[in-house]
Design a protein around this nucleic acid. Structure first.
Lengths: 349, 349
DNA sequence: CTGTTAGCGCTTTCAA
DNA sequence: TTGAAAGCGCTAACAG
């Protein structure tokens, strides 16, 4: 009650003229409390604008009311959509989301786990790609292991090799394969890929899918057909400029994400080319706002919000082999829209 | 060390054969500790994969390592950009962001503050609009007041009447005024507004700005020129459909946000109209991805990331009248792009 | 510089 | 049912 001080349960108990234990029980509904006492406690709490100290609660062995979400960049609509899904589920469980952004920095990712561990988050969700890096994986595993031992739950989105965590696995590879098959059907034979850093498993899987699908159709995708930039809009723009300077003759540019595709289209336009008349462009993800682009972006649609929601549900679900690498696969759907068309100079298969 | 248990500072101290206090000091660097002892503590901590229990730390009067951000919907690029700015600053202060989404529900907003209060967040940032509702304001103030008394810091983005909190105030009104003036200069005389719920202060301010600016130019904006929907893409779409069914003869549609503008453009297109040939459309915010839309959206550019960053900085800054309603104004800039053109049937002023 | 000790605010036995 | 009391893990006096 004094200045710059919190109202504590003790204040409430005193005001209500009951013991601490009774006040606690009345507030939490753990045990039956005589009605009149409960009333007194409740009104005292309201009167004093009491809010329990979550730290004290957590420390006393009570609740773990938070979950941690680690993403690369919340302003990327891919992560924003996933996080939204997480938040919906968190909300329905009365959990608060602690959000950490790593800006795709492996070390920061590790540091975030450590912080979330310190916060005793009830679950940690790794929503960004893993990094294809043995040493990193080892360190991450070392960080996660004691967290789990302490009762923490972990779920990851996309493949995290050797982390044996519960996983929500969007079918990047299969989606990529299906996409190139559709483009091949449309008549395309010369492709280029505009992509992010290959160490990201998401990127690696998608590119592998492109390559596989094309190989199955007798089209080879060499390293000279792959242009990498940062995994964002500007990366798409830059990689496409590189492609243009290399005078690549692709009739179809495969971007590793919708956001990169947006950059790609802009770069193409800036160079005086039109989409899809001169070049076809595809994306990946089907993120919300991009759906309204004109021309509509051909892409692989992923249920982003659901991915986030299921990641948290999976982490929270204690049943069946919990924590021991359960994998839930989610497939994508190829959406052919107006950013792709038959290539100008068509050749028969 | 036993199963399903956390490694505590005591374990570390025991392993390092020092006292609890020494272990604490070695880890936190609060006081000088003999080098060899510190070494022992550090290596014991590393060996045991020790992570301090943030709850215990907070409870013991140590750190407050988190800040709370309350937004309406993280998948809205407006909030995503602001939150990104917040996270950047949080990161540089070693703070973790606790993110709460209210989906523009006033009650949930209140509940979020309460939760964040319980978590003893060092600051709470209200990034969504306030609701123009006396009762709500009172309740919000009642929730915030004890939080502040306990040393909590509060900052809000956009006007929150009677909350007398530190405020980052983007100049919605002035920006809106400047925007309509630019459109008037282009030759437009008949306007319609596609907007969100008028209870949101952001919406109210922008519409007021439109109205004011137009009035100054001798153009009246009546209630029949204003079409409201939800404050998102679909709201923009729906409101525009309503506008269309009402056979409104606007030559320029003023959307209350970029995201709504995207919906508006789509609705117009679906009705067979082209932008800007048949109708001009403007947005507000200049959110990232929309910058790549074609036609480029005429809008008022707001420094969203900076708004988020400054909100947290302001909250954290204890100097000068801290907490007592300091206001930092940020102005927007009118960006005329290709979604607006001279109206078909031009008339002289 | 190091160790001992008293809390921080709450939950939860254990008795009454 | 209710109350007293023992921690949860850590920090910060306070002595040594």
């Amino acid at each position: 009650m004094s200045d710059r001080q919190h109202v504590t349960l003790e204040d409430v108990a005193r005001t209500a003229e009951v013991s601490l234990a009774t006040a606690s029980r009345a507030l939490n509904g753990t045990t039956r409390v005589r009605d009149d006492l409960r009333e007194r406690v409740l009104s005292a709490a309201a009167e004093l604008a009491y809010t329990p100290n979550a730290h004290a609660q957590a420390l006393a062995g009570g609740s773990r009311r938070t979950v941690g979400v680690i993403c690369h960049d919340i302003s990327d609509p891919y992560f924003a959509a996933i996080t939204r899904g997480v938040m919906r589920v968190a909300d329905s469980h009365g959990l608060l989301v602690m959000l950490a952004g790593t800006f795709a920095d492996p070390d920061r990712e590790l540091a975030c786990v450590s912080t979330l561990r310190a916060q005793r988050a009830s679950a940690i969700l790794l929503t960004g790609s893993a990094f294809e890096d043995r040493a990193w994986e080892r360190r991450m595993a070392a960080e996660l292991e004691p967290y789990r031992r302490g009762g923490g739950r972990v779920a990851v989105v996309t493949r995290h090799r050797s982390l044996k965590a519960d996983t929500i696995a969007p079918d990047n590879r299969g989606g990529a394969r299906a996409l190139v098959e559709a483009m091949h059907r449309l008549g395309h034979r010369r492709f280029a890929v505009v992509t992010g850093p290959p160490q990201l498993t998401t990127v690696a899987d998608r590119v592998a899918g492109f390559r596989e699908g094309l190989a199955g159709l007798g089209v080879e995708l060499s390293d000279r057909d792959v242009f990498a930039g940062s995994f964002d809009r500007d990366g798409g723009y830059d990689a496409t400029r590189a492609l243009l300077s290399a005078k690549h003759k692709a009739t179809c540019v495969l971007a590793a994400s919708d956001v990169m595709a947006v950059g790609a289209v802009s770069a193409l336009r800036a160079a005086g080319l039109s989409v899809p008349e001169d070049v076809s462009v595809t994306g990946f993800d089907d993120v919300p706002l991009v759906r309204d682009f004109v021309p509509g972006l051909t892409t692989v649609s992923l249920p982003l919000e659901r991915i986030g929601a299921e990641a948290l549900e999976l982490a929270l679900d204690e049943s069946g082999g919990a924590g021991r690498g359960r994998v839930r696969r989610l497939s994508g759907e190829v959406l052919v829209r107006e950013s792709t068309a038959k290539p100008r100079r068509r050749r028969r298969g």
